[in-house]
Design a protein around this nucleic acid. Structure first.
Lengths: 129, 129
DNA sequence: GGTTGACTTAAACCATGGTTTAACACGTAT
DNA sequence: ATACGTGTTAAACCATGGTTTAAGTCAACC
């Protein structure tokens, strides 16, 4: 199992190194090994774990809540029901957000249509001159 | 055409009054009338305009960009093509965001499934004792 | 042996999007 | 006339999520 440096992890996940360090400082990346010189070493598992965190971040889960999840993971099997609940609740939050966005998209489509029509008719106005 | 007080507008759009004032200060609500005592009066049109702003906010358009849109609206018909372009681009941004969220949802669904299975089998383990 | 490049840290800084506070003004019901 | 509810303002404050800076270590190449 290969290990990645922070720059490799950064490249693989397309996320700045500064963000990875920030996440670790916030407690989102426990158990990361270091080499003799103190450099972070990311295993494949840890890359995957970070990917999950990025998914949660991409769906606007606050860092404090991600931290809660991470703590539960560290705590072990006794917290599986809590984690399941967290994912189920978060999924619903995301679906609600997307519903809001879809509603906004509908309004934007109307705007786009109306503006397109106005531009069309103003062009016609010119042609008819 | 009736006019609404800030509290009525707030209730109608389910958004805090403080936010409405904040938006006005940021220039997102030009042309709002005031009564003799200096209180804001919102027409139906302005309520609808604010609703659009809320849609843009709900889809994570930064206030600076919303301001740009508002300025173009104030400027008049000469900016219709710019506004159309803004909406088309923003729509794509929103679709991209939703794609990211959908991808995250897929990962969450896998987690939910795995956790559910683990909980199931741990229950079975108990029963078999 | 000295510079380069990749890494480390803690702490300061920044942008965003509001919310809260303090101090004050108005109109109406008691 | 006074107290209440509702409004006003500017400015301070807050949370979130990073990014940047300053100061330093280490290994390796030239």
């Amino acid at each position: 199992m290969k290990h990645y440096s922070i720059s490799e992890a950064s490249a693989k996940l397309t996320i700045p190194e500064s963000t990875i360090r920030y996440y670790e400082k916030k407690g989102l990346l426990p158990l990361i090994e270091r080499d003799e010189a103190g450099r972070r070493l990311f295993s494949d598992d840890q890359i995957m774990f970070l990917q999950i965190i990025i998914y949660l971040k991409n769906t606007n889960m606050p860092i404090s809540r991600i931290k809660q999840y991470v703590d539960w993971v560290v705590e072990g099997d006794g917290t599986i029901d809590l984690r399941l609940d967290l994912f189920i609740k978060h999924k619903q939050t995301v679906l609600d957000d997307m519903a809001l966005m879809t509603e906004a998209l509908k309004a934007m489509d109307k705007k786009i249509e109306r503006y397109t029509n106005r531009i069309q008719s103003s062009k016609q106005g010119k042609e008819e001159k």
